[in-house]
C-alpha cells in the first residue's frame, strides 16, 4: 500500500521507492493481496474494539491485513501516523493532535469513547486531605490544585469544563503538569495535589483503599467526545475505500463491545468471551480471574457505529484555541472528515 502523498520526505517514501525498484525487477506482488495496514494501540480497555475486531477477524473480512503496533502513550501514535509508520489510531483530542492536524498530517474519521450522563466513565477525585478540608464536589474546586499529565491534555480540558460549568475561571485552579498518570495518582494519594480526573477502574479501587475520594463524575459535566478514530490525511484523500473498510470492521468491534459491557441484559457467556479477548492485551500479566474485574470496571461508553459528536468537537477545538493550545489556523473541516460515519449534534 502506498499512502505517502502530501509528504516529500519519509522513510515510507524511501521504502516505497525501493519496493518499486524490486517490483520492476520482476517480483511484483499478487494483484488481490490483502491491504496491509498498521493500527496503533495502547494496552487500555478503551482500545478494546481494536482488539475485538482483530481477534474476531473483522478486519480480515474486509480484506485488511492489520498489524497491531503498541505504544506507551496516545500522542506518539499520532506522531507515528504523521510519519507514515502507522495508518490508524485512537486518541483523545489533545494539543499535539491539533498541531499535527493543522500541519495536514492527520484527520479524524470517527468517534469512539464518549462521556455523557447515564453511562460509565471517568471519575473526579479529591485527595483525602482536600476532602477533609472541604473539597466535596467539583463545584468546590475553585482555589484548589489539579493534577494533569500536561497542558493541552484531556485532563487539562476536564479542568476547563469544570470551571466553565461551575462559573469560575480556569486560572482559579492551580494546574500541576506531572507528565504521567502514575505521577498524578502519587501526587493525589500523598495529598500534594488536591484533585484529578481518573479512569473508573483506577478511581474505584483507589477510593475503596481509602487513598482518595470520588467527588463527582466527568459525565455530569455534559456530553464529551473523548476519543476519536483517526488516520492520515493521505488515506482520507487517496484511499477512501480503505478507510471505509477499516471503519466497517471497527464498528463491528464496537458493537461487540457495547453488547458485552453497555447492555445490562448482556449474556454472561458473550461478556466472558469479550473479556477473554481483551485480557490477551490488557493486564495480560495477571491471571484472567484477577484481570476480569478491572477490565469490566474499565468499561466506558462507546458510540454506536463510531458516530462522531461534531458539535462537541467544535466546542473542544474552540476551547483549545482560546487557551493557546491549538493553532489558530486550524478549522473543523481541516481536522475532521465527517463523510465516513454518522454525526450527532
Amino acid at each position: 500500500m502506498e499512502q505517502t502523498a502530501g509528504r516529500r520526505w519519509s522513510r515510507r517514501a524511501a521504502l516505497a521507492a525501493l519496493t518499486g525498484a524490486v517490483a520492476l525487477a520482476g517480483l511484483a506482488a499478487p494483484a488481490h493481496a490483502e491491504d496491509k495496514i498498521v493500527l496503533g494501540a495502547l494496552r487500555f480497555t478503551s482500545h478494546a474494539p481494536s482488539f475485538i475486531a482483530y481477534e474476531r477477524g473483522y478486519f480480515k473480512d474486509e480484506g485488511l491485513d492489520v498489524e497491531l503496533k503498541f505504544f506507551q502513550a496516545a500522542q506518539p501514535i499520532a506522531v507515528a501516523i504523521a510519519s507514515g509508520d502507522v495508518d490508524f489510531g485512537v486518541t483523545a483530542l489533545t494539543g499535539g493532535f491539533y498541531s499535527l492536524a493543522d500541519k495536514g498530517a492527520v484527520k479524524v474519521v470517527g468517534g469512539l469513547y464518549a462521556e455523557k450522563p447515564g453511562v460509565p466513565g471517568m471519575a473526579i477525585m479529591a485527595s483525602n486531605q482536600a476532602w477533609e478540608a472541604g473539597l466535596k464536589s467539583p463545584a468546590d474546586l475553585k482555589g484548589h490544585s489539579w493534577a494533569m499529565t500536561q497542558q493541552g491534555s484531556s485532563f487539562h480540558y476536564v479542568a476547563g469544563q469544570i470551571a466553565a460549568k461551575y462559573g469560575f475561571d480556569l486560572s482559579d485552579i492551580a494546574l500541576k503538569p506531572l507528565q504521567k498518570v502514575p505521577a498524578m495518582i502519587a501526587a493525589v494519594k500523598s495529598g500534594q495535589v488536591d484533585a484529578m480526573a481518573m479512569v473508573p477502574h483506577v478511581a474505584v479501587p483507589l477510593e475503596k483503599a481509602g487513598a482518595a475520594r470520588i467527588i463527582g463524575w466527568v459525565r455530569d459535566l455534559g456530553p464529551w467526545q473523548v476519543t476519536t478514530i483517526f488516520t492520515s490525511t493521505g488515506n482520507v484523500e487517496k484511499h477512501r475505500d480503505l478507510v471505509e473498510r477499516f471503519l466497517k470492521a471497527y464498528e463491528k468491534g464496537i458493537a461487540d463491545y457495547r453488547a458485552a459491557f453497555l447492555d445490562p441484559k448482556a449474556d454472561p457467556a458473550k461478556k466472558q468471551a469479550i473479556v477473554e479477548i481483551i485480557h490477551k492485551y490488557v493486564y495480560a500479566d495477571k491471571p484472567l480471574e484477577a484481570a476480569a474485574p478491572s477490565i469490566e470496571a474499565g468499561a466506558v461508553y462507546m458510540t454506536e457505529g463510531a458516530a462522531l459528536d461534531i458539535a462537541d468537537i467544535a466546542k473542544q477545538l474552540a476551547w483549545f484555541q482560546k487557551h493557546g493550545l491549538a493553532p489558530e489556523s486550524l478549522t473543523l473541516d481541516k481536522m475532521v472528515d465527517t463523510s465516513f460515519v454518522a454525526t450527532t449534534k
Binding site: 500522542q75 489533545t94 494539543g95 491539533y98 500536561q150 493541552g152
Partner: peptide
C-alpha cells in the same frame, strides 16, 4: 524545560 516539554506535547 517545562517550555520544551509543553512544546513537545503540543507538537509545536
Amino acid at each position: 524545560g517545562a517550555y520544551i516539554l509543553l512544546a513537545g506535547n503540543l507538537m509545536a
